[in-house]
Design a protein around this nucleic acid. Structure first.
Lengths: 249, 249
DNA sequence: TTGATTTTGATTATATTTGAACAAATATTC
DNA sequence: GAATATTTGTTCAAATATAATCAAAATCAA
């Protein structure tokens, strides 16, 4: 059987069953498990299927919440490390923006007892902070249910009505050459608006995103003032050189 | 089964039942309790569910304060009866306002599969309708954590930007003599704004509130066009006499 | 055919996931 | 409020999946 038709067969099985594991596929397609893994890796790379531990899933079944994918991609300890650093910069009385990034979300646990006002477009953040000391202002507009966040023009206008002390935001990529980049225009809009309306903007960014560019380059690096990260010295040097304040310990 | 699909299964069970304990989940998903706990911990970390002692809850239920929960639980049959009547008036394509009343909340279950846009200031409504066919516009502004709703000037201005087909609202009292009354100015503001910006306003009101006045009389009866209620004929007669359309069957 | 390239399979090492046991924390009962 | 039962967190070991490396087989071009 040719290489291509095997892939098609695999795809068909996954589509029909919704889910299949490597062993099962190896048996049905009559090849070795290692070959199945290689095929699955390629197909996942092409965005045809969703790779799971031990097998693969149909995309339509896998796509439920965005936070799921974020979770898989990145690692909790790094995020908590970064979030803790960022939380140290928050003072009682502050008014802060928080966007819908997964690292930003981790901030919640560290600020529950602070007397601050949080302006956010993220429902998980709202949820996590309600019934705490924190006073919440929710940004209005269209709900993106995958991201569990509010986006769009109305949201941006809402943000513009406020002037905050600090903004805490995430991105999908940052590099000295191309500045901030995102995988979605919706998120880029919100990030830009928050940065513009805060006196200081803190970018929470784990080492995997430093020096990377995503498809949408949306802002120069100087719209933020602080980079909070877990990255080692050599990775952050270029950012310090262009005048960014880097917080990594 | 991969751990990804297991998590989805768990999420689905929790979403459907509102609540589930570890033992039950372990049984249904056919895995050990420790694994369920680990999954729940991760999912709670991602803000997908609310972790309780011994199990997990749906987000929409978790943050609802006891007072609101009691309201929802009180007179359930009447509220569902009214909500069902109201739901029958909603057509695919409608843009509707929903306020944060407990009867209005019961509307959610009947409209999950309709292709409509809901503009609301109620977080329980948002949680209940996210990941359904309904498209959601969340009203922005200050969060009142007791009511789990957005109130205030900014919220009112948000409402004014939209023109809806129908508004579904609740009140604390209604009488022919004194019109609509509420126990809180915050709610009154929102109700008034929604009514003003909808072509038709439906007041969802169980029989206990008919003919009653609460401390704040905030609007004349004619800002609404329809009264949806479970009250018997003799109670509703006065309202029909002043020109209100009454729906009670 | 011969040699180069690609694809596949086997083996080993690494990482991840899972479950068990037990101590600590938290509810529940009286 | 003390005693009891549950639930949870932690640590460790076993099972399982993946990644990396290299050699064998198949394919292709001349």
């Amino acid at each position: 059987m040719s290489y291509q038709s095997r892939k098609q067969k695999i795809l068909k099985i996954v589509e029909e069953q919704g889910e299949a594991d490597v062993k099962e596929l190896a048996l049905k397609v009559e090849t070795s498990e290692i070959t199945i893994r290689r095929d699955l890796a390629q197909m996942a790379g092409d965005g045809l299927i969703f790779r799971t531990h031990g097998g693969a899933m149909k995309l339509s079944l896998a796509n439920i919440p965005a936070s799921f994918e974020q979770k898989i991609a990145a690692n909790i300890e790094q995020k908590d490390y970064i979030a803790r650093l960022a939380a140290q910069k928050i003072r009682d009385g502050d008014i802060i923006f928080m966007d819908c990034g997964s690292t930003v979300f981790r901030l919640c646990q560290f600020i529950k007892n602070k007397r601050i006002k949080v302006i956010t477009n993220s429902l998980p953040v709202v949820y996590e902070l309600s019934n705490t000391e924190v006073s919440i202002n929710l940004i209005g507009g269209e709900l993106d249910s995958k991201r569990q966040a509010i986006h769009g023009q109305i949201a941006v206008e809402h943000i513009k009505r406020y002037q905050a002390d600090k903004a805490f935001v995430g991105v999908d990529g940052i590099s000295v050459e191309n500045g901030l980049s995102a995988a979605s225009e919706k998120e880029a809009e919100i990030t830009t608006a928050m940065a513009a309306n805060a006196r200081q903007t803190y970018l929470l960014c784990d080492s995997s995103k430093l020096g990377k560019d995503k498809y949408l380059k949306f802002a120069p690096i100087n719209i933020i003032q602080y980079l909070v990260t877990d990255a080692p010295q050599d990775l952050i040097k270029p950012f310090i050189d262009v005048g960014l304040n880097v917080i990594n310990e």
